[in-house]
Design a protein around this nucleic acid. Structure first.
Lengths: 168, 168
DNA sequence: CTCAAATGGTTCAAGCTTGAACGATTGGAT
DNA sequence: ATCCAATCGTTCAAGCTTGAACCATTTGAG
């Protein structure tokens, strides 16, 4: 696509980087989650299980922040994980609004077994890049991701202030 | 997440690069497609309209390949675009299996108007990176994307051969 | 204390996404 | 000429994803 767009250098450069970023992300996700299908684990479910394994129990709201997913989405995915008996909900006593999500023993066994396979696939896909390239990618992608997040929060802040201006 | 996983250097490096790639892609997509909502254009629809604008009319199968989407998905998205009157289907006479998708004048006006806004957003998000970083990102992401695609086609080829072995 | 705002979770409608099963069409092998 | 396999599009079930409306709970201002 980008090669067929005529525009100034800055725009072409940004669009080219953008399209290749998206496609790389798309392809690597597809590739590295293919093996989950057979187990009946969806990518969204895997992400939750992995977060719980490596970060410990947490409430749904936190989970949504970590995984960049909406509240409604977390509810659904946790519902499905609960149906499988891989996690359990635990209403907090000190703040009854919150529900902490815990791995069940069954869920822990599953993710402990599946995660190494996943890691192996990631290493395999990434091995198309040299160690130095992987490091560069990590740094640049991190910087870009942070930047985009900031743009979002900045905009939200501006809109909030604007709302306040109007209601005052 | 990656910082909480203990493993060998190679694996940590690959996982770190991977997670940052995914998150960068996620954040930039969210950011650059936010303005489409107001117009009632979904990201999937935008992608199709853009491909048709910059690459010309093409059949659904080609569209799916270009956008890395399944056949069923293309059918649905084109259905929705057709409902809006932004594209039209044209059954090919030389091969009646194929249906070529064309922008309507209305669709062309829409994407011609919307694309520059989109490009502007991409430039804005990407401006968090220097020109050199954008170039590096493009190169590395391209290499990685290509590599992942190859892994997929290789695997499919192996499975195909394996099938043949069994049926012979 | 009281009540309004904020917060956490659920539900819903709409649409995306996939893989599989299916029907129509085509092309090639015999 | 016939028929089988490949190709293209459609349909379907299942699940993901979001934003908005909604309810319960908590917090803080007065």
């Amino acid at each position: 696509m980008p090669t067929h767009f005529q525009g100034d250098l800055q725009t072409v450069r940004a669009l080219s980087a953008f399209i290749n970023l998206i496609r790389a992300s798309d392809s690597t996700i597809t590739k590295t989650t293919a093996h989950l299908e057979e187990l009946g684990v969806t990518p969204g479910q895997f992400a939750v299980l992995e977060a719980l394994l490596h970060l410990g129990p947490m409430c749904q709201h936190t989970l949504g922040e970590k995984l960049l997913r909406s509240g409604g989405n977390v509810t659904l995915v946790v519902d499905n994980l609960e149906r499988h008996g891989w996690v359990r909900r635990e209403r907090q006593v000190n703040d009854r609004r919150m529900i902490q999500i815990h791995l069940t023993p069954k869920g822990r066994r599953l993710i402990t077994r599946v995660f190494p396979e996943h890691a192996k696939m990631v290493v395999k896909v990434m091995s198309k890049l040299s160690a130095a390239e992987q490091e560069q990618l990590r740094k640049i992608a991190r910087k870009l991701g942070r930047g985009a997040e900031e743009l979002c929060t900045e905009r939200m802040k501006r809109e909030k202030e604007h709302d306040n201006d109007q209601t005052e």
